[in-house]
Amino acid sequence: MSLRDVEVRARKTEAIIALAIILATSPIIIGFSLIILSSFSKSMVTNFDPSSFHLTLENWINLLQGKSAAVGGLKENILKYTLNTAVVALGVSLVVTLVGTMSGYAISRMNFRYRKHFLLLILLLHAFPGSVLIVGVYFIYRLMSPIAMGSITTFSFFYVIIARASLEIPMAVWLMKGFFDLIPWEVEWAALIDGASRLTVWRKVMLPLVKPGIAAILLFGFLAGWQDLIYVRTFLAEKTLATFIEYNLGTLEFAEMPLVAAAATLYLLPTIIFFITSQQLLLKVSLAGLKR
């Protein structure tokens, strides 16, 4: 542990600051807890009224069995939606990681002709998020989508993955550049002088050295794909957990809200698990923009 401050700080002021932090965080804690709590109750418990809480596992059983009364008795296959969400998230994660590690290496280690322009482009796109281009992106989707109805689902998965991944590419490239920048040059020189090609150096020498970076970018890509709502609802031919929640709240009168709360809790679960297991990695990822 590094030295942060002297030991003689007043305990009292520290307690006051800690209390202020807790107070400021309380809406987040209360909001999320109430949704999770509601998923174990017969009706929503969002109003501090203990009488509305009746412990039950019914929501979870109904949810996992797909016996949802949510939309007029329609069967909802929640496991399939979870699987769809996971497919999108994993796809985004892999695409982002592959592209990020390749281009990150190039701009960190190679001095090519248009390097400056490429970097400027990446930084500009990083600063100016591409989600606003969705009208054009949907237009391309329509132009490219196959006529045959059978293949449209597969195509929509493919498209939503690469389109969503592209949003994260500038960030990913910049993040990986930062990780490659930290590796000493001597390692690479040795391999290059021995006659290895850049591709071999990248694959066999560099990638093993940036494992923390790869883990960070895999996680970051996964969470980006997992949390997405807009791209999934716009392009995907099938439902995910996000669109399930969206449509069920749209029909509030018929929907069993605690069931939706259970779906939301299920949806939140991987995020929480990653939070507990890889805090430091998440903080590292969020710092990616800050490399000078």
Binding site: G31, L34, I35, M44, L223, Q227, L229, L241, A264, L268
Partner: peptide, 14 residues
Amino acid sequence: MAPIAVYSLVWYYF
């Protein structure tokens, strides 16, 4: 980091 649909649901009830 939370799924956007869940995050919206939280504030919907809040």
